[in-house]
Simulated scan of single mutants.
Amino acid sequence: MEVRDRIIEEATRLFFKYGIRSVTMDDIAAGIGISKRTVYENFKDKTELVYTCMRDLMQKQDKINQEVMTNSANVIEALLTSMKYGIKAINMISPLFFHDLKKYYPAIWKPLHEENQKKNYNQIYTQLRKGINEGLFRKEIHVDIVSKLFYEQINLISDEAVFPHDEYVFADLFKSLMINFIRGISTRKGIDLVDEMLR
């Protein structure tokens, strides 16, 4: 693995564990046994490193999503598998990570968040259409409205004013949202499949 990739990997690990603000370039350098100078030879400052880590995360997530969709027998299996991956990822990330990203790096957070939302909307739209064709989702659902409602609910469970991190576990919120969402739009056949896969 090249030094640049090792820096990205270590920075991401530390950001996930401790949040972004408290992690220094010294911490990242020490974590992989290189000099701080080497870190700065690869990244001009912490802001560039944070941006690169976020881009890397998004690319990896896109790859996982594509693999899940390709390897799943049907849309419900794909969504529930994505949910399990999502919960696993959430449990690895400190709430401080997203807090720091939004508060101290809004110029990075806002455009990447908007880009990700658009991409995710397109993915869920495609999955809903596929689920209707498979007879697993109700054919009368308004795909555009339901797609937007789903991602607005994702934003809602991320809102600390509504669901404070010290009172709610985000993984539990995400699981509740996903299961209720999928069951709510499913046909009887789809609901039976959800229940079978969750046993």
Rank of each mutant, 00 (worst) to 15 (best):
M1E: 08
M1W: 06
E2W: 05
E2L: 09
E2F: 04
V3Q: 14
D5R: 12
D5V: 05
I7D: 02
E9F: 08
A11V: 07
A11G: 07
T12C: 07
R13I: 02
F15D: 03
F16Y: 15
K17E: 14
S22Y: 04
V23K: 00
D26A: 07
I28H: 02
I28V: 13
I28G: 03
I28W: 00
A29S: 11
I32K: 03
I32S: 05
I34H: 01
T38W: 00
T38S: 04
Y40P: 06
F43Y: 13
D45F: 09
K46S: 12
K46E: 10
Y51N: 09
T52A: 15
M54N: 07
L57I: 09
Q59G: 07
Q59R: 11
K60P: 02
Q61H: 07
K63H: 05
K63G: 02
I64D: 01
V68D: 08
V68Y: 04
T70V: 10
N71Q: 15
S72Y: 12
I76F: 03
I76Q: 04
L80S: 10
S82D: 13
K84F: 10
G86N: 08
I87D: 02
A89R: 04
A89M: 05
A89P: 00
I90V: 13
I90A: 10
I90L: 12
M92N: 13
M92W: 06
M92C: 12
I93V: 13
I93Y: 03
S94M: 01
F97D: 07
H99T: 14
H99R: 09
L101H: 08
K103F: 03
Y104K: 06
P106G: 13
A107M: 08
A107L: 12
I108A: 05
I108C: 04
W109H: 15
L112V: 07
L112A: 03
H113T: 13
E114L: 15
E115H: 05
Q117V: 08
Q117N: 14
K119T: 11
Y121L: 13
Q123T: 08
Q123F: 01
T126L: 05
R129C: 11
K130V: 10
K130T: 15
G131Y: 02
N133L: 13
F137K: 04
R138F: 01
K139T: 13
K139E: 15
E140I: 03
I141V: 12
H142Y: 03
H142E: 10
H142M: 08
D144Y: 08
I145N: 02
V146F: 00
S147C: 01
F150W: 06
N155Q: 05
N155C: 03
I157Q: 03
S158H: 12
S158R: 10
D159W: 01
D159V: 03
D159Q: 02
D159R: 04
D159I: 04
E160W: 00
E160Y: 00
A161M: 02
A161F: 00
H165L: 06
D166T: 11
D166F: 09
V169A: 15
A171Y: 00
D172Q: 12
L173A: 08
F174Q: 09
F174G: 06
K175M: 13
S176V: 06
I182L: 12
I182N: 06
R183G: 04
G184F: 12
S186C: 11
S186V: 10
T187R: 06
D192T: 07
D192A: 11
V194H: 02
D195L: 05
E196A: 13
E196L: 09
L198I: 06
L198Y: 00
